[in-house]
Design a protein around this nucleic acid. Structure first.
Lengths: 196, 196
DNA sequence: GGCGTTGGCCAACAACCGTTGACCAACAAC
DNA sequence: GTTGTTGGTCAACGGTTGTTGGCCAACGCC
């Protein structure tokens, strides 16, 4: 620490910090904001609850640190614009199943005001630029991006949170086949409902 | 009560019971299961918290009584099968905006296991029969009904819970125009994606 | 060796939760 | 007028939560 904000030599406590974050994501994803207690998170990370406070200040602070989400959306130049629907749905499925962060974010978003606002930010900042590149009229980009998120989040909600049986039973390919065209239409269809 | 389970003459306490239920629905819708405390609900209903326990046994019991949801889905014979998408989306919009029960159910469903199971039941029991009437292959009815709910609940989530700005800004007609065809396809399209 | 910093545990606090049971006013029945 | 029922309040219990502060062991530096 003698250095003035230099390359931050790795501290011994970094492992603990990381363990706390990992446990916090798991608990937030499984239990939501209220039921995910600091005590339970600390027990998972095998440290004392007071350590969580010391490293992250408060429960709110821990939540903010744990759910720093990057959707890692693909580059619009990397695929055929006519495939954007399938590509996106497939990507979100990957995201949701490889990482507990999104489930955590969704559960907390449905639980607390702060969580909802953070979620707004994530989808606005990351999905909107892609929508701007894909849709015919840039003025509609926000609306179209939001429509996409309504379907994608609806899938996540029914599949990972509410666990509707038929949605859980769907295979990855079936989901892409069903939702891909929907997302495609929301992003690229010339105007509301120009098909039968 | 002297009568053996007869027409139940209206008691004086019925008003209180009803006030409790109304307050409970509001609180569950606004705060979710955990944050909707019995004390707060009782204060809204202007009675003592212990009355809630007396009338509904426990918080779980209150929740079960407050969220006895009837989707009142329209009769399949009452509209053109080609319009089922728009009819359903429009109906769900009505439902969501006329009543706080659905918001409450969604928030609690995202919060607690019991809430999620109740929600499964509601959509399975009430949406599935309609799907059976509408879709080509009855074997797929469950899947198609679940896909519909994924889109409808995704809309409700982003509009009423997370309050994504562009979704909130959409007018009723725009929503019907955008989501109607999606729901229509999920219910009646002959097979996954038989269009470009 | 002495000593400050770091990483950690322990015990407690104040607040709030669901829940309980004792108590009370009003009213109807007899 | 007594008595039983109904609708309601009040005060408390036991448990859990986020949060705080004091104490302790290990290590690096001089």
């Amino acid at each position: 620490m003698t250095d003035t904000e230099a390359a931050t030599a790795p501290r011994r406590s970094d492992a603990t910090r990381h363990a706390i974050l990992r446990a916090a994501r798991e608990r937030f994803a499984a239990d939501g904001y209220d039921r995910a207690t600091i005590r339970a998170i600390a027990k998972d990370a095998r440290i004392d609850p007071s350590m969580v406070m010391r490293y992250y200040g408060s429960k709110e602070g821990l939540y903010a640190a744990a759910l720093d989400v990057d959707l890692r959306l693909p580059d619009p130049a990397a695929f055929d614009p006519q495939d954007v629907g399938r590509v996106l749905v497939s990507h979100f499925l990957d995201l949701w199943e490889s990482n507990e962060m999104l489930s955590a974010m969704l559960r907390v978003g449905a639980t607390s005001e702060a969580g909802a606002e953070r979620m707004q930010g994530v989808f606005r900042d990351q999905l909107l630029p892609l929508a701007r590149h894909m849709c015919p009229d840039p003025e509609q980009a926000a609306t179209r991006a939001a429509l996409c998120s309504s379907q994608v989040l609806g899938l996540a909600l029914t599949r990972y949170i509410l666990r509707f049986r038929p949605v859980v039973a769907l295979s990855r390919e079936e989901i892409v086949e069903w939702l891909g065209p929907t997302v495609q239409r929301y992003l690229t269809a010339p105007y509301p409902t120009p098909y039968p």
